[in-house]
C-alpha cells in the first residue's frame, strides 16, 4: 500500500550561507496493506523526517512515496498536488506527534471531534465518539470540556492520539505516540492501535521503547 523508494531530504539553510544539511539519507521500504512497520535507528537519523515527508509537512528532496489511495488511486506523495494531499489527510492519513497544535478556546472534545466533522459526520455524533475515546484514554472528566492548551504533556498527547485515531485512517503515521505517557495510558493506546490494526489500518511507526515496538510491529526496519 505504501512504497518508499530512494526517499531523501536535505535542508538548505540560507542563514548559514546556503549550507545543506542531510536530514534523511536515501532510504527505501514498503508496507503492505494492513501491516505495521516500525522504523528503528539511533536518534538523529531522520526517522521523524521520513514521516513528515510522507505527511508532506516536509517537501521530499528526491525519491518517490507511492501510495495506493482509495479515493485517488496510485499517487506519488512526493509530487502530489497540495489539494490532493489535503484530501488524503482528511480521508485516509492520520499522523500522531508528540506535539499538539491546539486551537484556542476549543474544548478537548471539539478538538478530537473535528476530523470527523470535516468528513461530514454530524457534530453530536462526532462529539459522542470523541468523548468515548477521551474517556477510554483516561482523560479526567473535568478536562473534557476544557481547552487542551493548559493540559499536561501526557494529556495533550492523548488528545492528539484520539484526534488522529477518531477517523480510523487507512494509513497511520505514529511518531513516538507513547513517549510521555504513564504505563496505564500506554496500555490503553496499545489497545486502541491493536483495534485499529485489526480493522485493517496500515501503520508506519517510531517507538522509542523497544518492547512496545516489538509488540506492535509486524516488521522492523533498521535504518
Amino acid at each position: 500500500m505504501l512504497q518508499v523508494d530512494q526517499l531523501s531530504k536535505t535542508f538548505k539553510v540560507h542563514s548559514l550561507g546556503g549550507k545543506e544539511i542531510l536530514g534523511v539519507p536515501p532510504c527505501s521500504f514498503s508496507v503492505e496493506e494492513g501491516k505495521s512497520l516500525a522504523l528503528s535507528a539511533p536518534s538523529g537519523r531522520g526517522k521523524s523526517s521520513i514521516l513528515k515527508c510522507i505527511y508532506r509537512s516536509y517537501l521530499p528532496s528526491s525519491g518517490r512515496i507511492l501510495l495506493q489511495s482509495r479515493s485517488l488511486g496510485p499517487v506519488d506523495l512526493a509530487q502530489l498536488d497540495e489539494h490532493d494531499v489535503l484530501t488524503l489527510r482528511e480521508e485516509e492519513m492520520g499522523y500522531v506527534t508528540q506535539f499538539l497544535r491546539v486551537i484556542p478556546r476549543l474544548s478537548a472534545i471539539e478538538v478530537v471531534a473535528d476530523p470527523l466533522c470535516r468528513r461530514g459526520v454530524k457534530r453530536a455524533e462526532a462529539e459522542a465518539e470523541a468523548e468515548r475515546l477521551l474517556r477510554c484514554l483516561k482523560i479526567p472528566e473535568p478536562l473534557l470540556e476544557a481547552s487542551p492548551i493548559t493540559f499536561s504533556g501526557g494529556e495533550q498527547q492523548r488528545v492528539n492520539i484520539a484526534r488522529a485515531l477518531i477517523a480510523r485512517p487507512r494509513l497511520l503515521l505514529l511518531d513516538e505516540p507513547t513517549a510521555s505517557l504513564d504505563r496505564e495510558s500506554v496500555e490503553r493506546v496499545m489497545d486502541m492501535l491493536n483495534d485499529l490494526k485489526a480493522s485493517g489500518s496500515t501503520m508506519l511507526m517510531i517507538f522509542h521503547d523497544k518492547e512496545l515496538m516489538y509488540r506492535m510491529a509486524d516488521e522492523v526496519m533498521e535504518l
Binding site: 535542508f11 513528515k52 508532506r56 509537512s57 516536509y58 517537501l59 497540495e82 494531499v85 489535503l86
Partner: peptide, 8 residues
C-alpha cells in the same frame, strides 16, 4: 501547505 511552509 501552511504546515509545510512553517516546518520546511
Amino acid at each position: 501547505l501552511t504546515d509545510q511552509i512553517l516546518e520546511d
